[in-house]
Amino acid sequence: MRYYLKSIIAFSLFPQILLVKFLATKPEWIETYYSHGIYPIISKLFRILFGWLPFSIGDILYACLIILAVRYLIRNRKKIRYNIYPFLRDVLMVLSIVYFTFHFLWGLNYYRQPINKKLEIAITYTKPELINLTEDLVAKSNSIHFQITNDTAKAVIIPYSKSEILAMSKIGYQKLSEIYPKWNYTAPSIKRSLFSTLLTYMGYGGYLNPFTNEAQVNGIMPKFRDPFISSHEVGHQIGYSAENETNFIGYLAAVSNEDLYFRYSAYTYMIGYCLNDIRANDQETFDRLYSQLNPGILKNYQEVTDFWMAHENPLEPVFKSIFNSFLKANNQKDGIESYSKVVALLVNYHQKYPL
């Protein structure tokens, strides 16, 4: 590639950043022309292209890029040392291409209109409203748990394989699309990540590859969590980037699924967020509600806790810090804490549509 062309691509990064910052002030444009215009076409095209493959093209792409980058650095280390400016220009060029591709293929969804506007619900709530919702979630979870186990003391064991769980995730979205047609999900592309062990040590249950639009689920996590996590990642695929909103859509899809294991996974996942919110200000109420959960549910919670504790490592906080910074740089000012902001959506949605 000619020197001047490389320079043009490299320095185009700066006007790109300014353009994205400008578009961030126009969420109505993003919602209309990107999230409901260009993006659904891009997403479905990639799902059709890669969804039928049993392995992750995105994971392979990442691995190849890392190998090529390391190989380049090793082979050109002396050249780089004495020609630092061309090297920095090439790095800037790569960043420019990645920045454009990321935002065009998926990232502009970070700047779409908040979901509460679409659903016409508030994002503030009172303590009594939160407690009432948590009580309802506890009752729902206990009821479904007993329907599955016929024993309040037994942990739920999902009888499906990981692949079956991922395939079943689309069913909830099919039901949900009867109410919200824009959330229709066809041409599924949900896969176990080839790097599930690495994801585990990084502390993640899944992710969406923004360059191939493949939903990746951690393949070695306890299956108790899989129905909700797979539904969450599909929420990213249909165009929602904010973690609280994707948690919320994943929850709605999972509880819309007629399968009891999906509903159990979603209800018990949301209880965790609600109880954490209550515990921050009212330990007594937290203790009361927590004690109302069936012992079998607590065993499922302990299974997940034991899994993450067994994979604790010094680098996990580093990865979490990087991801936290990434989220903040992409219009999620609460960073990783934005996951827990799903509580506001849950409370207000169920004020409008009771459990």
Rank of each mutant, 00 (worst) to 15 (best):
Gln302Leu: 12
Tyr251Leu: 08
Leu208Asn: 03
Thr32Gly: 02
Arg112Ala: 13
Ile121Trp: 13
Leu346Glu: 14
Ser96Arg: 03
Arg192Thr: 14
Thr152Gly: 09
Tyr185Thr: 02
Ile190Phe: 05
Phe195Asn: 09
Asn76Phe: 06
Asp151Gly: 13
Asn213Met: 04
Glu164Ala: 09
Ile38Cys: 04
Asn300Arg: 11
Leu327Arg: 04
Glu316Ser: 03
Thr101Leu: 14
Val342Leu: 07
Ser340Arg: 03
Glu303Val: 08
Leu275Ser: 07
Asp151Val: 13
Tyr180Glu: 04
Asp90Val: 03
Tyr301Cys: 05
Leu119Ser: 09
Val347Gly: 09
Phe46Glu: 06
Ser189Ile: 04
Tyr34Arg: 00
Leu5Val: 15
Arg71Phe: 10
Phe55Glu: 08
Asp136Phe: 01
Thr186Ala: 11
Lys118Pro: 02
Pro114Val: 13
Ser340Phe: 01
Tyr34Thr: 00
Leu275Tyr: 05
Tyr125Gln: 03
Asn281Ala: 06
Lys44Glu: 13
Phe102Pro: 02
Tyr125Asn: 04
Tyr290Lys: 01
Val217Glu: 01
Ala242Lys: 14
Trp52Met: 10
Asp226Pro: 02
Arg279Met: 13
Phe55Gln: 05
Ile42His: 01
Tyr180Val: 06
Ser196Met: 12
Leu327Lys: 01
Tyr269Cys: 05
Leu298His: 00
Glu284Ile: 10
Asn331Val: 03
Arg77Ser: 06
Ala187Leu: 03
Lys299Ala: 11
Thr212Gly: 00
Ile57Trp: 01
Leu133Glu: 01
Lys191Asn: 05
Tyr110Asp: 12
Lys140Met: 10
Ser256Glu: 10
Pro159Glu: 12
Ala69Gly: 15
Tyr72Ser: 04
Lys117Trp: 12
Ile144Tyr: 03
Phe22Gly: 13
Tyr261Pro: 14
Tyr353Leu: 12
Leu194Glu: 04
Ala266Ile: 08
Ala122Ser: 15
Ile38Ala: 12
Asn213Glu: 00
Lys328Arg: 15
Tyr111Leu: 09
Leu95Lys: 08
Arg2Trp: 14
Asn213Gly: 01
Asn132Lys: 15
Asn142Ala: 06
Lys223Gly: 09
Leu18Ile: 14
Glu337Met: 05
Glu129Gln: 15
Leu315Ser: 13
Met202Gln: 10
Glu245Pro: 02
Thr124Glu: 15
His350Trp: 08
Arg75Thr: 05
Gly205Thr: 08
Ser196Lys: 12
Glu233Gly: 03
Ser169Gln: 00
Leu65Ser: 13
Leu105Thr: 09
Ser340Gly: 10
Gln292Arg: 14
Pro128Gln: 10
Leu53Ala: 12
Tyr85Phe: 15
Asn132Cys: 05
Leu53Ile: 14
His103Cys: 06
Asn313Cys: 04
Gly296Trp: 07
Gln332His: 04
Asp287Gly: 02
Leu345Met: 03
Trp29Ile: 13
Leu13Cys: 06
Leu355Tyr: 13
Ile41Asn: 05
Lys170Arg: 08
Leu260Trp: 11
